[in-house]
Design a binder for these strands. Structure first.
Lengths: 397, 397
DNA sequence: TTGTATGCGTTATCAG
DNA sequence: CTGATAACGCATACAA
C-alpha cells in the first residue's frame, strides 16, 4: 500500500513527524506514546506500530535541547595510560552507566591550561557534569572550578576549603605508612623517587616523606631524594641518577609507574630486590602485582575515590543546591615481595617501635590473595602469588 | 548603568538573545558576528563587547541540532585496561582532537550484545561516527555494522568483504613471525597460550600457530596449547595448567597481558626465562618493556591502526559517499630478552632455515632503544635496556 | 485523550 | 549590512 511521502529529517531518517503521520495522529500524541505518558490503547498501538515500521529512534540532541541535559558526564585525568586512572575510570564508569549516562574521557597531560580551557568549555553545556583530577592547581584554576557552569567534583587535594565537592585521600599518611613499614623491617637508608614538586601530589608526598623520616629520628640524606615525572621512563632515569651517587637500602616511589622504572634501574645496577633494596610503590595498581617480584604499594583507594566522586556528582546534578561536600578515603599499605617477606600479620596500631605515630589505624595488609579466575595449582613461587585487588591511583591527592 | 532585564536561558546563562539585546542589534547580527561572518565594524565591536561582558558561550547542543553534527566521535573497545587499547586510543585521540572533535570511549567487555546495542543507539545521533574494535563478530553484528546510521570504521578482521571501512593487521603472519624466530633460535617444544577460540583474534591466532608449526615440520602436541581469556590472571592460570602437563621450551602468548601472566607462572614454577623457556607476547605494549626480563612481542601496529582508522572515519564523515575501504598494517616482531639474546641483526627474508615462508618481509627487530627521557647512565643490566616504542594491540584482528 | 502551538538556542534564508 | 522569521527535532502547556 504505497504511502504518500512521509515527513522525515534532512538525512532521511524518521522523526516524530514521520511516526505521527504514519500512525495518523498528531506529533503530540506520538511523542506522548513514545515517552510512555498517556495515550489511548488504540493510539498507543498505532504509534508503536508506526514507530517500529519506520525504525524510529529519538534524536538525542533535540531531546537534550529540550530537557537541558545530555546524559553525558566527563572525566578529566592527566594520563589515560596510567593504570591508576584506568582503575578510577572503571569505578566511575560503573556508577555513571548505572545511572543511564555515558562517560566522556579527557586526557589533560597535566597541563594546567588544558584543564582550565576544559572547564571553560564546559559552559557549552555538552556534559551534565564533570569529574576532574588535577595534579596542579592554581588560583585561576580554582576560580574556574568554583564558578563552573556545570557541577564539578574534584578528585584530589584542594587547597584551603574551596567550595567544591571533593574526595581526597591522605597521601601524606600513605607515605608515612610506607616509611613505617620500611623502618620496621630494618631499613635505614630510605630513598624517595618522587614526581614533580610543582604538583600537588609531588609536594605533599615530599613533605610527608621528610616528616615521616623525622618522626623516626632519621636524618634525611638529600642524595637519597630524586625527582622525575610520574612515569615509567622518568622513574627509571631518576633512579639511575640516584643510584649513581647513593646507596639506599630501600626506595619509596611516588607511584607504581615510577616504582617499575626503579625496579628496572635497580636490577640493571645489579641490586637485588628486596635483599639489597626494598621497594615500595604508591597507588597499588594492577601493575604492582604484575611485576616480579611483586611490588609492595600504598593503596590510595583510587577506585573507591572514583566511585564516591561519581556518586557525589550524580547527587549534585540531581540537586545543584547541595552544599559543598568533602570526603576522604584512607590510605593503606599492601605489603608484597618487593619489600621483604610478608609480615606474619598486620601490626597493631601504636606499635611502640613506630615512635610518634601519625595516628594511623592498622592500615597494613599482606597480600596473599590468589589470582582471579580458575584456582591456580598449588605450585607457589618463591615470592608469593598474585592477588586480585581493585583500587589504585597515580598522582592525585 | 542598570540595564533592564536581559533575555537569558532557563538556567540563567546568556544566549544569543542576551548578547543581541545588550549590543542593541538583532539576534541574526549577533549570531553572524559570533560566527565571524559579516557584520559592519561597528556591529562587530558592539557584539563582541556585549558577548565578553555577559560571558557568552554558545550552547553546543543547540548548535548541533542545527548543524546536524555533534563533534563527538566514539571508540568502542573490549577492555579499556588493556594497554594495547590505551595505545590505540591515544593514537585515535590525537587525530580526532586534531580535527577539533572529542572522543567518547566505550568499554564493551567483549560482550556482543553490548556492541550491537551500542551500534543501534548510534541512531540517536549523539556522535558523528564510531570506531569499533570487536573481538567477536556475528551476522547480526555485521548487519548492524553495515547499515549503521552514522559512519563506522572497524579495527580488526572482518569476515568476507563486508562493505565497511576497516583497518586490520595480519595476526596470522604475526604468529608466524614469532614461531619462525623461536624455531630459528633452536626451540622445538613451542607452546601457545591463547585467548578464547570463539573470538576472531583467538581463532585466527590458533590457526596461524598450527600452520606455522606445520610449515616448520613440527608436530603439534596438543598438551602445549592452552586457552584462557585475554587477561593477566587468565594467562597465568592457563599457563599453570599447561605447565602441569607439559614441558615447553618456548611459549607464545596471544597478547602481552597473557604473556605477563605466563611469565609469573613460569617463574613460580622455577623455570628460567629465557634459559629454560623462551617467552613471546603479542601487541608489543609498553607492558612488554616493563617486565623483567623484557618481553619479546609481536607488534601488530595498534597505534598505527588506530591512527588510520581515525583518518578513515574523518574522511567518511566528510564524505559519506566514499566507497568502503580496507587498510592493512603489517605485523613485526620485536625481540627482547625474554626470547634469548638479541639476534645480531635482522635475518633476511627467505632464510633457507625457515622453510616455506609466509612471504614475510624482514619484519624482525631487536630492540636496543634507550629509555625515553633523560639519557640513562651506562650501567646496563644483564638483559638490555627499555626502549621507547609506541604501538600495541590486545585482541583485535 | 487529543491536537495546536510554543519554546529549547542556533544558524540560515530571505527580504529590506 | 541588517533584521524578521523559519527551521532543526522534540516535549509540553494549554485548549478542545
Amino acid at each position: 500500500m504505497g504511502r504518500k511521502r512521509l515527513p522525515e529529517s534532512a538525512d532521511g531518517r524518521p522523526t516524530v513527524h514521520t511516526v505521527a503521520a504514519r500512525a495518523g495522529v498528531s506529533i503530540a500524541s506520538a511523542s506522548r506514546v513514545l515517552n510512555g505518558v498517556g495515550g489511548s490503547p488504540e493510539t498507543i498501538r498505532k504509534v508503536r506500530a508506526a514507530a517500529a515500521e519506520v525504525g524510529y529512534v529519538p534524536n538525542a540532541i533535540a531531546r537534550s535541547l529540550q530537557s537541558q541535559r545530555t546524559g553525558l558526564v566527563a572525566l578529566a585525568v592527566e594520563d589515560i595510560g596510567n593504570p591508576v586512572y584506568v582503575a578510577m575510570m572503571r569505578a566511575i564508569e560503573a556508577v555513571v552507566a548505572d545511572s543511564g549516562r555515558q562517560l566522556l574521557v579527557h586526557a589533560t597531560g597535566g597541563r594546567i591550561d588544558n584543564e582550565t580551557a576544559l572547564l571553560r568549555r564546559l559552559a557549552n553545556r555538552y556534559v551534565d557534569g564533570m569529574i576532574i583530577s588535577p595534579i596542579r592547581v592554581t588560583d585561576d584554576h580554582l576560580a574556574a572550578l568554583v564558578d563552573s557552569p556545570v557541577p564539578v567534583v574534584v578528585v584530589g587535594q584542594l587547597g584551603a576549603d574551596a567550595p567544591v565537592d571533593n574526595v581526597r585521600t591522605d597521601s601524606r599518611q600513605g607515605v608515612a605508612l610506607a616509611v613505617e613499614h620500611l623502618v620496621a623491617t630494618g631499613r635505614r637508608r630510605i630513598g624517595f623517587v618522587n614526581g614533580p614538586l610543582d604538583t600537588v601530589p609531588g609536594a605533599v608526598r615530599d613533605a610527608g616523606f621528610r616528616a615521616a623520616l623525622a618522626r623516626h629520628g632519621i636524618d634525611l640524606d638529600e642524595d637519597l631524594v630524586e625527582v622525575g615525572d610520574f612515569q615509567y621512563a622518568a622513574g627509571r632515569a631518576a633512579t639511575e641518577r640516584l643510584l649513581a651517587r647513593a646507596r639506599p637500602d630501600a626506595l619509596l616511589c611516588a607511584n607504581d609507574l615510577i616504582a617499575v622504572g626503579a625496579l628496572h634501574a635497580l636490577l640493571a645496577a645489579g641490586r637485588r630486590v628486596p635483599e639489597d633494596v626494598a621497594l615500595v610503590g604508591m597507588d597499588d595498581t594492577e601493575l604492582a602485582r604484575m611485576m616480579f617480584p611483586q611490588l609492595s604499594s600504598v593503596s590510595l583507594g583510587s577506585a573507591e575515590r572514583g566511585r564516591r566522586a561519581a556518586e557525589l556528582l550524580l547527587q549534585r546534578i540531581a540537586d545543584p543546591a547541595l552544599p559543598p561536600r568533602r570526603e576522604q578515603v584512607p590510605p593503606s599499605l599492601v605489603v608484597r615481595a618487593s619489600s621483604g617477606a610478608p609480615l606474619p600479620s598486620p601490626r597493631p596500631a601504636g606499635d611502640p617501635f613506630s615512635g610518634p605515630s601519625t595516628g594511623a589505624a592498622s592500615a597494613v595488609t599482606t597480600d596473599p590473595a590468589p589470582p582471579a579466575g580458575p584456582p591456580a595449582d598449588p605450585a607457589s613461587g618463591p615470592v608469593g602469588t598474585p592477588p586480585s585487588h581493585p583500587s589504585s591511583e597515580g598522582a592525585s591527592s
